[in-house]
Simulated scan of single mutants.
Amino acid sequence: MQEREAWRLSGSVALRPEPFGALAYDFHTRRLSFLKTPRLVDVVRRLGDSNDVGTALTAAEVPDAERPSYLAALTTLASGGLLEER
């Protein structure tokens, strides 16, 4: 996933807030995933309203040094079908 790409949470996915972050449940695949930090949840929630991934990372105040880790996490979520390209 690149910072200039536009993504969003898939329409079949619901997020349930948890103290550690959130549970993501896909109603089509019945797949359950864990978003392990509140900041990652914030980024995922912002994706749909942001121009691109980089804007969502900036809005969620992800430090520059941590951006590669967040991009990797978002790539994993996308490969599992929890995120979709816009």
Rank of each mutant, 00 (worst) to 15 (best):
G11T: 09
S12W: 10
V13N: 03
V13Q: 04
V13A: 08
L15S: 07
L15W: 00
L15M: 09
L15G: 02
L15C: 06
R16G: 05
R16E: 13
R16A: 14
P17R: 15
P17Q: 15
P17S: 14
E18T: 11
E18C: 03
E18K: 09
E18S: 11
E18W: 00
P19L: 12
P19T: 09
F20H: 12
F20A: 13
G21F: 00
G21P: 00
G21Q: 05
A22G: 04
L23Y: 01
L23G: 02
A24N: 06
A24W: 08
A24E: 07
Y25Q: 04
Y25D: 07
Y25K: 01
D26E: 10
D26Y: 07
D26S: 14
D26P: 02
F27S: 15
F27C: 11
H28L: 09
H28N: 13
T29L: 02
T29H: 09
T29M: 09
T29A: 07
R30E: 11
R31E: 15
R31L: 14
R31G: 14
L32I: 15
L32V: 15
L32C: 11
F34D: 10
F34S: 12
L35R: 00
T37E: 05
P38T: 13
P38A: 12
R39G: 04
R39E: 02
R39K: 12
R39I: 00
L40V: 05
V41N: 02
V41W: 00
V41R: 03
D42K: 05
D42F: 01
D42G: 03
D42A: 14
D42T: 05
V43D: 01
V43F: 08
V43S: 01
V43T: 06
V44D: 03
V44F: 04
V44P: 07
V44Y: 01
R45L: 12
R45G: 03
R45H: 07
R45T: 12
R46A: 15
R46K: 15
R46I: 10
L47S: 02
L47W: 10
L47H: 03
G48K: 11
G48E: 11
G48D: 12
S50H: 10
N51H: 12
N51G: 15
V53L: 10
V53S: 08
V53D: 04
V53W: 07
G54P: 02
G54R: 02
G54T: 08
G54K: 09
T55M: 07
A56G: 02
L57Y: 05
L57N: 08
L57M: 06
T58C: 06
T58L: 12
T58W: 05
A59Y: 00
A59E: 11
E61K: 11
E61M: 07
E61S: 10
E61P: 00
V62W: 00
V62S: 06
P63G: 01
D64P: 03
A65L: 07
A65I: 14
E66L: 11
R67W: 06
R67M: 03
P68A: 10
P68N: 09
Y70L: 03
Y70D: 02
Y70G: 06
Y70H: 08
L71G: 01
L71R: 06
A72H: 11
A72M: 10
A72K: 10
A72Q: 13
L74H: 09
T75E: 15
T76Q: 14
T76H: 07
T76L: 14
T76E: 15
L77Y: 10
A78M: 07
S79P: 00
